[in-house]
Write a protein that binds this DNA or RNA. Sequence first.
DNA 1: CAGTCATGTTACCGGTCGGTAACGTATCGC
DNA 2: GCGATACGTTACCGACCGGTAACATGACTG
Lengths: 206, 206
Amino acid sequence: MNPAKSEASVAPELPGKPRVRDRIFETACDLFYRQGIRAVGVDAIVGEAGTNKMSFYRSFASKDELVAEYLRSRDRCFWQWWDAVVAPHAGNPRAQVEAIFEAHVNKTCSKESRGCGLANAAVEIVEDEHPARSVIVAHKSEIRRRFRTLAAAMSARDPDQLGDALMLLMEGGYLARLTFGQSCAHGGPVTSALKAARTLMDAHQR
Amino acid sequence: MNPAKSEASVAPELPGKPRVRDRIFETACDLFYRQGIRAVGVDAIVGEAGTNKMSFYRSFASKDELVAEYLRSRDRCFWQWWDAVVAPHAGNPRAQVEAIFEAHVNKTCSKESRGCGLANAAVEIVEDEHPARSVIVAHKSEIRRRFRTLAAAMSARDPDQLGDALMLLMEGGYLARLTFGQSCAHGGPVTSALKAARTLMDAHQR
DNA sequence: CAGTCATGTTACCGGTCGGTAACGTATCGC
DNA sequence: GCGATACGTTACCGACCGGTAACATGACTG
């Protein structure tokens, strides 16, 4: 089960995983995010990755499982991004929230953005038993928890209420990006998120 | 199975359209909203509607065109709902927004809700030339316009900013409903939308 | 009665869906 | 050289995708 023990022989690449699986996975992540999960078939993935279906099913149990892994990957990247944005303002929760929203607006209005991959998956996937569902609710629950924690740390009058409101603003931006396209950049509705967050925090701190 | 035998002789319905087209259309709307657009095939629609594919393509040019019509229908229903909610508070824009958000929270947290069908379509449909896209952006643009108009009518300090913020709150609720399921009802994030809207309006009216 | 119109029936098209079986081969450490 | 591991190739499965052709039926209408 563990092929990587003494790989120091040649080691032209990363230790751990060979090549094909990663190529498939990264291609799949890219396609899933840009075109949607249902819209991208296994054939399209392996075609783009320059391999074949057998190699796919040697690396992944099923497409559904790959989708779940895709979302786990986006979840990790998201929190990496969050922590990096928040770090410079340690100890200042209000500044942290402002930094998050500023970065969120920039990211969401960028040309390549297709909103939140996790949220999009929540729209596309209806089945309760789909392995991706738990990933989605865990991700969004953690976002909620962090916003509430931040709100509490800034001594908001009603931290849970403020935290939820901030979350709604953020999620709303994702949808607005998809409905309005990139026109959300120049004075589009997404750009209002930061100011709205400030206004809400002001009101809860007064 | 077919009770419409006697009433057909009296013609109690519209003289224009017979029956099959409407049956197909209503079935399609129901399935599209509950399961998603890509997840529902033409076969599933005609099967559920108790008819066949030929009758489908005699009534609709293509599935894409049906999807566009489905969204136009939801658009009409939405504004019907909006106008009904707003009507009792004519001349009082602030009360109108509050009524909208109260009704929105109730509707979105209900058991059958799957968020906003238009927004979900924006997630599922990537192609720019899809006949549904224009319906989606028209719908969301009008929501934005109305919120901004309402904000201006209540003499908000920055009406465009407030209007956009209200829109983001609303859209965020749709996504939260999908990610958290019906648990958004009891103290879930969606329920915070009304209070957040009030807080924002307070701040802009002070 | 004849004609028309809406609807149903059956079969079909090429293509794609997720997924699998069987087999071939290149590279590797031992 | 040996076996193991990783990857590629070809072919296939049943099901479904959106969409069409040809034809039959039944009812309402002139």
